[in-house]
Amino acid sequence: MLRQFKSVVHSAKVAKVFLWSNIDINIRLMSTKMDRNNFFFRQLFDPVSCTYTYLLGDLTTRDAVIIDPVLEHAERDAGLIKELGFNLIYAMNTHMHADHITGTGKLKSLLPGARSVIGKASGATADVHLADADLVKFGGYQLSVAATPGHTNGCVTYICHEQGIAFTGDTLLIRGCGRTDFQEGSSEALYKSVHQKIFTLPDHYTLYPAHDYKGLTATTVGEEKKYNPRLSKSLGEFIKIMENLNLPYPKMIDKALPANRVCGIY
């Protein structure tokens, strides 16, 4: 029977609940709750490719960006952006996807003025090409760009230090990572990217991947450092794991890559 209840919220993400039995229970709050009231965050989902799309905005200036949109949901996303009164500044990708066609090109036609964004090393067409340490600004917020190759040459992670969050694409998944057996993949490069650019972030930073296949929505730096069954291992062990995954040929790659090289419009 609950006799005493107190709640203390740390960074609007974790609440510690004290029971009469003096046992501490950590409860993760909804991932849409951010630290500043004028920061907007919305996580969207494509059930076919299990892709997460992220809409971020400044509620004061109404400027917004969208990360990893999917072509089939471009009208959904554009409708939401219009309904909420946002001005889409950038339609961004974490890398050149092989499992779906990006919605960036379609969003540009639906929301004139939006610009497409991708890592320069991807070799894909875009209005803006990013390199390591670049900044993407929208309203009063900014995303720091970290080059995190390994899954592909052009993979980047977007970090919002003000909110303590990062968008890792396929480089780091929840208890996993992107495959490295095609499209310029390198297990050694991916391992170094994660350990040098993501695992060096504070442990409490919340990480949002481009995909999840088990219904999980987010993780933290600390969790992945401790529990990731691949990336918590040594480099040598990680390479052996990746060499023995025996994954099937990506079913969408022959259609997705040519389209994504030209911003999803082909």
Rank of each mutant, 00 (worst) to 15 (best):
D99C: 06
A210M: 14
A147F: 03
G85Y: 06
T219I: 08
Y158E: 10
F199S: 02
K197G: 03
D127H: 03
K108G: 06
G123W: 00
T217N: 04
Y208Q: 11
G119Q: 04
P202S: 05
T94Q: 13
A147W: 03
T171D: 04
F86T: 01
G169V: 11
V194P: 10
H161D: 14
Y158W: 09
N87F: 14
G103S: 05
G154I: 08
Q142C: 11
G185H: 10
P112G: 07
G185E: 05
D99N: 13
A98N: 09
V194Q: 02
T148Y: 01
S109Q: 14
C160H: 07
M92S: 03
T220L: 11
Y205R: 08
L201R: 01
L111N: 02
R115E: 14
H204Q: 11
P209W: 12
G105R: 06
K106H: 13
K82P: 01
S187M: 05
S122A: 03
C155Q: 04
C155H: 05
Y90Q: 10
G113T: 04
A133L: 13
F138W: 05
Q196E: 15
K108F: 04
A126F: 03
Y191Q: 10
G154T: 11
G169R: 00
A114P: 12
Y191C: 13
G215I: 12
V145M: 14
H161V: 09
Q142E: 15
V128H: 10
D212E: 13
V117F: 12
Q163A: 06
D127G: 15
I165S: 07
L107Q: 12
G150P: 15
F199Y: 15
Y213Q: 13
R175D: 11
K197Q: 15
K106E: 14
H195A: 04
I118D: 04
S109A: 06
V194N: 03
D181Y: 08
Y141C: 15
D170S: 00
D212N: 09
C155L: 00
I174W: 05
K82G: 01
L110H: 06
A166V: 00
Q163L: 14
T94P: 06
P149Q: 01
R175E: 08
T168E: 12
D212H: 03
T219G: 14
V194Y: 02
Y191A: 13
G85H: 09
N153W: 00
F167P: 02
I159G: 11
K120D: 14
H204P: 08
H211L: 10
L190E: 12
H195F: 10
